[in-house]
């Protein structure tokens, strides 16, 4: 089988451990001075690609990130985890605010053609917007088969055998290459980007470009009207005895 060239998406998101706060003017969440890191599902996707390379199935692993200059830190992490080279598609300011899964999917589709990749592995969703759309849209744009929510991936003949997590069980699918795979939580345990590897990653190539260079239009097709906090849980109250409890339950219509 011909060797795979794997493209992996690495989104820079607010770190999973940070408590996210909504801006007072409801236009979004506070991002300034907040710790960012690679989307955990993308780490899993990258780990899977690196393992394919270690099994000599893949010849090259290319990490991609779309966003502001700071995304290069995320890409360094990706290189430290084992990607061979990185591509940074620079989108900043208001353009980045309005960047939607469709825009990213178009950028990735253009890169797939440019880099002649034949497998794309993405995280199933990002933990900031929770869209869960990019992989599906990319597969549609490229007209490639897709396996979403993958919890196991193996190479079988000229294609891939993928186990998918579906409601109430697992689904085994076989798909021909080229293909798009999106990673679920249980696919693997990603390795840690260690300090020595971060240092070594600085020698690996990182190319920069803009959506314009790729001939991609990323104008948003929808606008965010407002971002709001989830409702606060109301405080409970103590009851003195069983009679009061029953009265209260009757009042609230539960009983």
């Amino acid at each position: 089988m011909s060797q795979l060239r794997v493209l992996v998406g690495c989104k820079r998101v607010i770190d999973y451990a940070v408590k996210v706060r909504v801006k007072p003017d409801k236009t979004g969440v506070v991002k300034e001075g907040v710790k960012h890191s690679m989307n955990p599902f993308d780490e899993i996707a990258l780990e899977e690609a690196v393992r394919l390379k270690e099994k000599q199935v893949a010849s090259e692993v290319i990490a991609v990130s779309c966003g502001p200059q700071a995304c290069q830190e995320t890409l360094r992490t990706a290189l430290a985890m084992g990607a061979d080279r990185a591509l940074h598609v620079e989108v900043s300011g208001s353009e980045y605010e309005g960047l939607l899964p469709l825009g990213v999917a178009k950028i990735l589709a253009a890169l797939v053609k440019k880099e002649e990749a034949n497998l794309v592995v993405l995280g199933k969703q990002a933990i900031d917007d929770d869209c869960n759309q990019t992989g599906q849209m990319l597969a549609a744009l490229l007209d490639w088969p897709q396996a979403t929510f993958a919890s196991a991936v193996s190479v079988e003949g000229e294609g891939l055998a993928v186990t998918r997590e579906v409601d109430g069980g697992l689904e085994n699918v076989r798909l021909s290459l080229p293909a798009v795979v999106t990673a679920d939580l249980r696919l693997n345990e990603p390795r840690y980007a260690t300090l020595p590897n971060i240092m070594k990653s600085k020698k690996k190539p990182l190319a920069q470009m803009t959506p314009g260079d790729l001939g991609v239009d990323i104008n948003p097709s929808l606008t965010v009207l407002s971002v709001e906090d989830p409702p606060v849980r109301e405080a409970g109250s103590k009851v003195e005895d069983v009679d009061q409890l029953i009265a209260k339950l009757k009042d609230s219509g539960v009983f």
Binding site: Y16, A17, P40, I127, L185, E189, P190, Y192, T194
Partner: peptide, 18 residues
Amino acid sequence: IEALYMLKKYRTLKRRYY
């Protein structure tokens, strides 16, 4: 420590999404 961090991340995500 590395293992601890990865486990903490895995558990948080599992609690949040599953």
